[in-house]
């Protein structure tokens, strides 16, 4: 699924997005960062409510395709700055995690 279609389906706010045509495949839901690093495949959508700057480090090292903050959780300023600075794709949706996953065809 293209990033632009994910943004539309989730009615998401874009914090940082470099390539809206990028293909996202698969997904992982979770907030404990080590579980994300253990299980999330590269290029996937990561659904979380964790919003601190460590999210940027994990998203970058794990090479997730897009990080989706759910429940309307806003990223803290450091996460915003790191996402923009490192060219990470980060979006925010008001939908709860379960609803967000259901809305997408990954």
């Amino acid at each position: 699924m293209k990033l632009k279609d994910i943004i539309a389906a989730l009615d998401a706010e874009v914090v940082s997005a470099e390539d809206l045509e990028k293909e996202i495949s698969g997904g992982y839901c979770g907030d404990f960062l080590s579980f994300v690093m253990a299980q999330a495949p590269a290029g996937c959508a990561w659904f979380t409510v964790m919003s601190n700057h460590n999210v940027a480090a994990v998203a970058a090292l794990t090479e997730v395709g897009v990080t989706i903050l759910c429940e309307g959780v806003e990223p803290d300023e450091q996460l915003k700055a790191k996402a923009v600075g490192r060219g990470l794709d980060l979006i925010v949706t008001a939908k709860p995690v379960f609803e967000a996953v259901k809305a997408l065809d990954l």
């Binding site: 907030d31 404990f32 080590s34 690093m37």
Partner: peptide
């Protein structure tokens, strides 16, 4: 609260 401390750090390093 920061998202760490799940007890998966060393197992991930091994993995």
């Amino acid at each position: 609260d920061l998202g760490f401390g799940a007890g998966m750090g060393l197992p991930n390093m091994k993995k």
